[in-house]
């Protein structure tokens, strides 16, 4: 008998093993929900799959009677636009700052302490300030995402730029590279796959800040909706919304991973295609 730590599952086994716990969780939910509904048909805490299905039809495929919008798509659109804007600003700012700080010691000496301090300020504590300064509109929500992500990404990318081997730093100069050329031809291309990796890790916090901001003040958005229907204990809406958010986050993570492997084959473990 081999040691258990040496037994690796093949593809099929791996798939089955991965699906079993997911199936079990769903099964457990259905059984518990059934139990509760049998005792009290008006129970709202654990709605049946059928009533969640009804809610999905109402929110995803039927226009709202008052506004004429299909709420799920409207909410998804509003949230994704905010999320995308917040991420885009953070990533572009972090890339610029990371490269400058990582490559130029004088700039690093000037700004690294400030960024280290800012990156430990709890972003949620700044939300009231953002609401006061930027009002309750879109800007304050995007600003919260940026404040939450950018300092972390800046530190992370500065670190990645600095950890390019010194041999390459010297080699580039012996090949005639100026500071600018080192940035655009060596530091930038080697940082981009790390940037994608860091962005993937930031998706979780990005959603956290987005939903928090939407929960407090918004007129649409996925976070806004679940906090709105919470008042009616509408678990049949909340649960599908949460699953939908999870799905979006999961798929965007997969897409970023695939994008990185496609654009930067040299940065990944698989044998690069030539």
């Amino acid at each position: 008998m081999r040691r258990i730590m040496n037994v690796n599952p093949d593809r099929v086994t791996k798939l089955v093993l991965g699906l079993v716990p997911i199936g079990l969780v769903i099964l457990l939910y259905v059984m518990m929900s059934h139990e509760r509904l049998a005792l009290n048909p008006a129970d709202k805490l654990m709605p049946s799959l059928a009533s969640m299905g009804d809610a999905i039809v109402r929110y995803a495929f039927t226009a709202d009677a008052r506004t004429g919008d299909v709420l799920l798509w409207k909410d998804t659109g509003a949230s994704l636009i905010r999320l995308f804007q917040g991420l885009a600003i953070s990533v572009i700012a972090a890339l610029a700052v990371g490269l400058l700080l990582g490559v130029i010691p004088l700039i690093r000496a000037g700004f690294a302490p400030l960024i280290s301090i800012v990156s430990v300020v709890p972003p949620m504590a700044l939300l009231p300030i953002l609401f006061i300064i930027f009002g309750l509109g879109e800007v304050s929500k995007i600003a919260l995402i940026v404040i939450g992500l950018a300092p972390f990404l800046m530190r992370d990318l500065t670190h990645h730029v600095q950890s390019i081997p010194v041999e390459q730093f010297i080699k580039a100069q012996t090949l005639g590279a100026s500071t600018w050329q080192y940035i655009v031809r060596v530091a930038l291309p080697q940082t981009l796959p790390k940037l994608i990796q860091s962005t993937r890790l930031s998706l979780g916090p990005a959603w956290l800040f987005l939903i928090s901001a939407e929960a407090i003040a918004a007129e649409s958005g996925l976070g806004y909706r679940i906090f709105l229907v919470r008042r009616y204990l509408a678990m049949d809406v909340i649960i599908p919304y949460v699953i939908w958010i999870t799905l979006i986050a999961f798929v965007s993570d997969l897409l970023l991973g695939a994008l990185s492997r496609k654009l930067y084959p040299w940065a990944h473990d698989e044998e690069p295609s030539t």
Binding site: P165, E167, Q168, K171, A172, L175, G176, A177, S178, W180, Q181, V184, R185, V186, P189, Q190, Y264, W266, A267, T274
Partner: peptide
């Protein structure tokens, strides 16, 4: 170790020397 640029192909690793001399801004 680490003398060559991992993000460039073999020929690009040699080409970069010519590129840096000829293209000060883009390096390409």
């Amino acid at each position: 170790r680490y003398s060559v640029f991992p993000h460039l192909t073999v020929i690009e690793n040699v080409l970069i020397g010519f590129e840096l001399a000829a293209a000060p801004f883009s390096g390409v």
